[in-house]
């Protein structure tokens, strides 16, 4: 909008001061970002090597690598996604396609998801410990950590999938109905495939959130740094490993830097791919139905 309105700056002192202040603030934020990244990169590069990535931690993590930690992280993540994806996407499909805007059930589901998004991660940790670890008897394990994370991921998966489904033009639904498709097959064969990029973007954001999480995993998946033998074993994720090295292990800083670098690199990569998907999706939406392969639905028959 700002670009459309060409605002002539009248060069009053107050205008100049405001401009200066805003540029300074932006510069400050950039500088802080650069400071953090360069610190982590400089500290991490020195210790990072292939052996570090695939090796097992020795001497409480001071020496050795993070191989077993990466395995635990991947397992926790896999459990979380396997539990959260079906639940999240079906909930999104219901909210976007089946309930009316004023429906009480839809409103209640949406409200509780928004509450869930606001719950602090340490509270998820307490809940996971009380429910999964103790009440369900899973103990400190990959399984209880993953399930706790699944609860955390639900809101983000639902909201991205729901907005993706809502962005599909109604013409698709009407054409499908005119062709006599049932609502179920419309959903599975038409709407979900079209919304795939936004589902994928949400999935990546969820993965990012999950591998960044520490507080919720401290008392659910635990601290044990061996490669887990089963899903009921305790396993330490990368974020917990960084926490433990920097707080509880004197002399663990070098390894912590390198682990932080691995974590940040993974997160930046995931975020960038997610953003790329989201922008592609937006562009496709603007170009409308003609280019996305489903055009034959509303094209006139020759």
């Amino acid at each position: 909008m700002a670009e459309m309105v060409s605002m002539k700056s009248m060069r009053t002192p107050r205008d100049c001061f405001a401009k200066l202040a805003i540029y300074c603030a932006a510069l400050l934020v950039c500088a802080a970002f650069a400071w953090i990244l360069s610190d982590i990169a400089r500290g991490g590069m020195a210790h990072l090597s292939l052996d570090f990535v695939i090796g097992s931690p020795r001497d409480a993590g001071r020496a050795g690598g993070i191989g077993s930690i990466l395995v635990s992280t991947a397992l926790v993540l896999a459990i979380a996604l396997m539990a959260a994806l079906p639940l999240g996407w079906t909930t999104a499909a219901l909210l976007a396609e089946y309930v009316s805007a004023g429906s009480r059930f839809g409103g209640a589901v949406r409200y509780s998801l928004q509450v869930l998004a606001a719950v602090p991660s340490i509270v998820f940790g307490l809940f996971g410990n009380a429910f999964f670890s103790i009440y369900l008897g899973l103990g400190f394990s990959i399984l209880s950590g993953g399930l706790t994370l699944a609860c955390m991921l639900l809101p983000i998966l639902v909201s991205t999938a729901e907005s993706g489904l809502r962005a599909i033009p109604d013409a698709h639904r009407l054409s499908a109905a005119a062709l006599g498709m049932s609502r179920t097959s419309t959903l599975f064969r038409l709407l979900l495939p079209i919304a795939a990029p936004s589902l994928a973007a949400g999935l990546l954001l969820g993965i990012g959130r999950a591998i960044a999480e520490t507080a919720a995993l401290l008392f659910t998946s635990g601290y044990v740094d061996r490669t887990p033998g089963s899903l009921l074993d305790s396993g330490r994720t990368l974020a917990v490993h960084i926490f433990d090295l920097s707080m509880n292990v004197p002399g663990g800083d070098a390894a912590a830097y390198a682990s932080a670098l691995v974590l940040i690199a993974a997160l930046l990569l995931i975020n960038m791919v997610a953003m790329r998907l989201a922008t592609d999706w937006q562009r496709r939406k603007i170009m409308a139905e003609n280019s996305n392969g489903y055009s034959n639905i509303d094209a006139p028959r020759a």
């Binding site: 400071w35 953090i36 960044a212 926490f243």
Partner: peptide, 23 residues
């Protein structure tokens, strides 16, 4: 700049903590 702010939002809290602790 917007992308940078979004990336800032994606940095895990444990990394912020570690950076704060060491720097």
């Amino acid at each position: 700049y917007r992308r940078l702010v979004e990336l800032l939002a994606g940095i895990p809290s444990v990394v912020y903590g570690f950076w704060g602790l060491t720097t």
